[in-house]
């Protein structure tokens, strides 16, 4: 309770300082709108539906792309950990592509897929899949062999061992890889939306882009706040429960 109070006070203070600086007229209001103006923009765009619509469009792209990334990356990671040939081929590709900043996929996606949803999806998948592959591979390799041996003596074989022993044993690594994949997917999607105008849906990145075109600073800051909030919420809703569960089970803290 006390911690929350302190945190709330801290953010109120930040808002206060922001407001004070604006009143002191250090910057022109065009460059730095006051908090109220940003709030007003958010409220207005919420009421006329643009904000909600754009958030939905963006989240939909993100979720679909990310889930596809995990669905592809997890089995690939298991394969690279299991088979030497896959490790020497796909594993190397994954390692290389993971170092590529995900924004770099945008030009390629545009030329390949044009200004379509497919391009967006492609960017998100490419942004997330490699870190999931590498984290899964890494996680599986660090599983102490004694777990598999113990499982074998209890009658576990092949696929059962992989699903019931190796996979859960590697879970802490996999979850942190999925979290990293999420962060990359989010970043790459924003980049794609800012750079690419597409006709099928108007996402948060587009709002940001048009904010710039229109010199609407209240819009830019408002949308940035929304993007931050979504990132935080995703962390709390998607990953925090997993991590808490794992910490409790494994006793890591």
């Amino acid at each position: 309770m006390k911690r929350r109070l302190i945190a709330a006070l801290f953010f109120l203070m930040l808002l206060g300082i922001w407001e004070l600086l604006c009143r002191a007229k250090i910057w022109s209001p065009v460059m730095m709108p006051e908090p109220l103006a940003v709030g007003e923009y958010l409220w207005e765009s919420l009421r006329d539906g643009t904000l909600g619509q754009a958030t939905l469009v963006t989240l939909r792209r993100l979720l679909i792309g990310y889930l596809a990334g995990v669905a592809i990356g997890l089995p690939l990671g298991l394969l690279t950990a299991r088979f030497k040939t896959v490790e020497d081929t796909l594993g190397v590709i994954a390692l290389g592509l993971q170092t590529l900043p995900s924004v770099c996929w945008v030009p390629l996606a545009l030329l390949w897929f044009g200004q379509t949803e497919m391009a967006m999806l492609f960017v998100v998948v490419m942004g997330s899949v490699w870190s999931v592959v590498i984290a899964t591979d890494n996680g599986v390799r660090t599983v102490p062999p004694i777990y598999a041996r113990a499982a074998r003596t209890m009658g576990s074989r092949g696929l059962h061992t992989w699903l019931k022993v190796i996979l859960p044993a590697a879970l802490p690594f996999i979850v942190s890889g999925m979290k990293q994949g999420w962060a990359f997917a989010w970043r790459s999607l924003m980049a794609a939306e800012i750079f690419v105008t597409i006709l099928t849906g108007f996402g948060l990145g587009h709002l940001l882009h048009y904010g710039r075109e229109l010199h609407a600073m209240d819009q830019i800051i408002g949308i940035m706040l929304v993007i931050i909030a979504i990132g935080l919420l995703a962390d709390k809703i998607l990953f925090s429960p997993w991590e808490k569960y794992l910490h409790r089970r494994w006793g890591t803290d």
Binding site: I146, Y147, R149, A150, P168, A169, L171, R249, W250
Partner: peptide, 8 residues
């Protein structure tokens, strides 16, 4: 070492 599974 006990080789118990920490996820269970």
């Amino acid at each position: 070492e006990s080789a118990l599974f920490p996820w269970l």
